[in-house]
């Protein structure tokens, strides 16, 4: 067993293929899964139709309600579907089936059924994606009892999390970042290497400040840590990986050590997940804090198109650094 370099899209594909080989009840459905490139942009399903056939790699019509609803029905009826809604923006067409059905069935039927499905909904600003192809909606689903939400930052996260997501009996919203599909990373080729849902990774140890983040912002926070280090600030970078449940133990431990917390998110800051983390730490770790918790996130505007406006909208490494330094000025 060894580490192999591959893109995140390929890492998810490998993880899915391994699980499909392991368990004949795992299958995937979504738009464009079996067309020439196995996906519209990043070869997410390339070659899978050849190995698994059209009963398990199901190329669907543009019918988001039914892609999601069928996945719920198929999960209840004894299979483990992976439904791909391609982008979180299109996931909104199927919020009903995800929120009213997938998240509720086990509960409202008194535990008679489980809904073991994964729904892939890619998030994040992708250059020029504008208002309807660049949204990050993770907070919507974290807010929904019954759902699990994960958001990988690295290729290794991407593979380990898709495998764990497929194996859990809960419905999982798997939110990969569109801008990271082609980002390369080191990935284990051991089919038994999984990443536990609910376990964060500490990407860098530090002593002065904790930056909690997820998805692409974890990578930008890591870059920010390099710059901060040259200015004498030692930042600990936590990549949450799993947003619900989230790894409170790791964050509590880190903040108890550093006494400072910044939450960096790409999604709209208002009522985002950073607000929950911030409130939780303020309620439970106030005695350890040297200064109040800061957040950085997107403004509450739709994602603009033109480059200068898009750049204005984005959370960047520079902005993370600037916000991080605020924790060291007057409290």
């Amino acid at each position: 067993m060894s580490m192999i370099t591959m893109t995140q899209a390929a890492a998810v594909r490998e993880g899915l293929a391994e699980e499909m080989r392991r368990d004949p009840l795992v299958w995937a459905l979504g738009e464009d899964l079996s067309t020439a490139h196995g996906g519209t942009s990043a070869d997410q399903y390339l070659g899978l139709i050849d190995e698994f056939g059209d009963k398990r790699i199901v190329n669907t019509p543009i019918s988001e309600n039914t892609i999601m609803g069928a996945a719920v029905g198929a999960a209840v009826a004894g299979t483990r579907p992976v439904a791909d809604l391609r982008m979180a923006d299109f996931g909104m067409c199927a919020v009903d089936e995800l929120v009213n059905q997938a998240a509720k069935i086990r509960y409202m039927f008194g535990g008679q059924a489980r809904v073991p499905l994964v729904v892939r909904q890619a998030i994040g600003v992708r250059k020029g994606g504008a208002a309807q192809h660049s949204q990050s909606t993770e907070a919507w689903y974290i807010h929904t009892p019954g759902l699990v939400v994960v958001a990988p930052a690295t290729a290794s996260d991407a593979k380990g999390l898709i495998k764990s997501a497929i194996r859990t009996d809960d419905p999982v919203v798997y939110m990969e970042h569109k801008d990271l599909w082609l980002a390369e990373g080191q990935v284990s080729d051991n089919p038994n290497d999984l990443i536990d849902i609910g376990k964060a990774s500490i990407m860098r140890q530090g002593s002065d400040l904790t930056i909690v983040s997820w998805s692409k912002m974890a990578l930008l926070s890591l870059q920010a840590a390099d710059q901060l280090k040259s200015e004498g600030i030692s930042a600990e970078i936590i990549n949450l990986r799993s947003l619900w449940p989230w790894d409170k133990d790791t964050i509590y431990k880190s903040v108890s050590k550093t006494g400072r917390l910044l939450v960096a998110q790409e999604s709209v800051q208002v009522a985002g997940f950073g607000a929950e983390i911030s409130a939780d730490i303020s309620e439970n770790l106030n005695h350890s804090l040297k200064t109040y918790v800061r957040r950085i996130g997107a403004p509450r505007t739709p994602v603009p198109y033109s480059e200068p406006m898009e750049n204005e909208y984005r959370v960047t490494t520079t902005r993370i650094i600037k916000k991080a330094k605020e924790l060291f000025s007057a409290p």
Partner: peptide, 25 residues
């Protein structure tokens, strides 16, 4: 009996998925 439901038409989308599961299994 896989459930009565409070949202109209969701039985249809879940029903076709349940049928797909029967075929797959």
């Amino acid at each position: 009996m896989l459930g009565a439901n409070g949202v109209l038409a969701d039985g249809l989308t879940m029903g076709v998925g349940a049928a797909q599961a029967l075929v797959l299994r």
